[in-house]
Design a protein around this nucleic acid. Structure first.
Length: 273
DNA sequence: ATTGAGACCTGTCGGC
DNA sequence: TGCCGACAGGTCTCAA
């Protein structure tokens, strides 16, 4: 469903799901049922995994990184529809990769739209990686705050929404959580990104508020994933609520939708300025 | 350099 | 009922 689109909280949730089954376990057998996700798999993908042990499973932005005993790193991106299953009974047509681990666990990667990525990085390829090395700060790290956000937005002529989707500004947000954070912070998605910083790049109050709301919306989403309860109504305050009353306290506005960078933006024109 | 638009992919949904 | 186009979105590529 909507909240399964893999943004940072969903990827963190996947990491926590996999960790007990993967870390300290060995790849006994790897099945590649479809090698054509977003890119072709690296050469000898299966052989480079089999027989090796996972030493550590971490997350950077929307990427999962498994450090292997071979000193290579398995890099995984869930794209738009990727998910993992543990010991699922029957194979689905979209189960593209199956890891048979030494502990007996069978880990299945499912990805109907095949926008996901699996790659293997040799020891030297991690540091200067064309994507990883350009990622901005982790939004939940202490390094990310209003000052860091303002500095990254300084002089940017693009919209605040586009800036937050730029993984070099802050790493791990997608359309939904950007829309939610802007709503919570009471900031218009159309506003120029540079307006949250002073001319010298110092944070305005809006930058501090936005950074705090980004953290909060992610923390709440991760906690929701952990509880794994199903919701009868949307957990989002503004996303996909076009025409509904604004959910912010004392706001009488109505949620509007418009397209920004070929993505749907939902916002309240009354309280988001 | 920065910014924006199009492409990739397929399940779902609304309209006729 | 069934078909078909529109839509969803993360990231890469290309062009202005």
């Amino acid at each position: 469903m909507l909240n399964r689109l893999p943004e940072l909280p969903e990827v963190e949730s996947a990491r926590r799901l996999l960790d007990p089954w993967m870390t300290r376990a060995r790849f006994d057998r790897v099945e590649v049922r479809r090698p054509d996700l977003r890119h072709r798999f690296p050469r000898r993908f299966r052989q480079r995994l089999e027989g090796h042990t996972v030493l550590d499973l971490s997350r950077r932005a929307k990427y999962l990184l498994a450090t292997l005993s071979s000193r290579e790193t398995l890099l995984i991106h869930l794209g738009m529809s990727g998910s993992f299953g543990i010991n699922t009974l029957a194979l689905d047509p979209h189960d593209h990769v199956v890891f048979h681990m030494s502990g007996g666990a069978v880990i299945t990667y499912n990805d109907p739209r095949r926008f996901g990525v699996m790659d293997l990085l040799r020891p030297g390829e991690l540091a200067g990686h064309p994507v990883l090395s350009r990622l901005g700060p982790e939004p939940l790290s202490p390094a990310f705050d209003g000052a860091a956000l303002a500095q990254a937005c300084r002089g940017k002529k693009t919209s605040l929404k586009a800036a937050l989707l730029d993984q070099r500004v802050v790493a791990g947000l997608g359309n939904i959580y950007v829309v939610e954070a802007l709503h919570r912070a009471g900031l218009s998605p159309r506003r120029r990104a540079s307006t949250i910083a002073t001319a010298s790049g110092a944070p305005r109050e809006s930058a501090n508020r936005l950074a705090a709301e980004i953290k909060q919306v992610l923390i709440e989403a991760i906690a929701r994933q952990e509880r794994r309860q199903s919701y009868r109504s949307s957990p989002f305050r503004v996303y996909d609520r076009e025409g509904e009353p604004c959910t912010r306290p004392r706001c009488s506005g109505t949620v509007r939708r418009f397209v920004q960078g070929a993505r749907s933006t939902f916002y309240c024109p009354v309280c988001q300025r």
